[in-house]
Computed example of a mutant assay.
Amino acid sequence: MKKVYTSAAKALEDVVFDGMTIAVGGFGLCGIPENLILALRETGVKDITVVSNNCGVDDFGMGLLLQTRQIKKMVSSYVGENAEFMRQYLSGELELEFNPQGTLAERLRAGGAGIPGFYTKTGVGTIIAEGKEHKDFDGETYILERGIRTDLAIVKAYKGDEKGNLTYRMTAMNFNPECAAAGKITIAEVEEIAPLGSLDKMAIHTPEIYVQRIVQGEHVKRIEQRTTRAG
């Protein structure tokens, strides 16, 4: 099966539909699939549920889909620096399902591993636990969290080969491997498509079985918060 596509727009053809769920890799602006996000905006798909740690910033990354009102619901752990995200949530325009960060990562990992649910102590005694099953283990109370599977996952990797094996670079790995595994269809954008056999097998973080499409893109790599000391 040919996995390499010539553009992000081509890679998204015939896989998007209104009301779908999408897992999006990245953390803030680090490791986000920026070309696929832009192409997703151009499809005009609407009423989508996005599973992502946060929603970037107002004018870049996932924030662009908030501007166009294409997102119906966010499943996130952090509102962050995005003023439009905050405004839409507080005004009732956007649904938000808050998750502790580690719980969100594990829900994605579990979904990708075929695990329908798991018990965790995180959130016990808080509003996170409301409406969820409670169970005691060794005298401690845990709550049941469900694994997450999405219709589509879009991720960003440093390098990938023609079969879809992916390797991430440093902190840009963040949520990308978990999102890649959780998608029924996964599209990866990479900085470089490497020749088959050239990737170090020990450095392949997402194996080809999880990836259906891959595209090479140019990346801005913006800094979300630039802090410098006085000269």
Rank of each mutant, 00 (worst) to 15 (best):
N174T: 15
V24E: 10
K3L: 02
D59R: 11
V57C: 09
T150M: 02
I22M: 06
M62T: 07
F137S: 04
F27R: 12
I209T: 13
Q216M: 07
A153M: 00
A157C: 14
T126P: 02
D136P: 09
Q212F: 03
G31D: 08
I214G: 05
G217N: 05
N35W: 03
A9R: 14
E42H: 04
K156D: 04
A8D: 04
E42I: 01
E13K: 13
M74L: 15
I187R: 05
T103F: 07
E34C: 00
V57I: 15
K132G: 09
H134Y: 10
A8E: 03
G183Q: 03
N35A: 09
F175V: 14
F17P: 01
I193Q: 03
G111R: 01
V50L: 13
D14S: 10
V24P: 11
I32G: 05
I214Q: 00
T228A: 11
V211I: 13
S76K: 12
L96P: 08
G197P: 03
K184T: 00
Q70M: 03
R109S: 15
N165D: 06
L196C: 01
G26Y: 09
I214A: 02
L38V: 06
N82D: 09
T43Y: 03
I193G: 01
L104D: 10
V124A: 01
L64F: 01
G164L: 06
E191W: 00
H134P: 07
N99A: 11
E192Q: 12
T186F: 02
V75T: 13
M170R: 12
F17S: 11
G123E: 00
K201C: 06
E95R: 10
L104T: 11
G164D: 00
L40A: 01
A83E: 15
R41I: 00
E208F: 09
G139K: 12
E224K: 15
Q67A: 09
Y5R: 06
E162K: 07
V4W: 00
Y78F: 14
L64N: 05
G164P: 02
R87Y: 11
E42V: 02
L152I: 00
T120E: 02
D59F: 15
V16P: 05
F60P: 06
D18P: 06
T186V: 04
V211Y: 00
K73G: 07
L29M: 07
A194S: 12
P100W: 08
F27L: 14
E106R: 13
D18Q: 09
K10F: 13
G61W: 10
A129L: 04
T141Q: 06
L96Y: 14
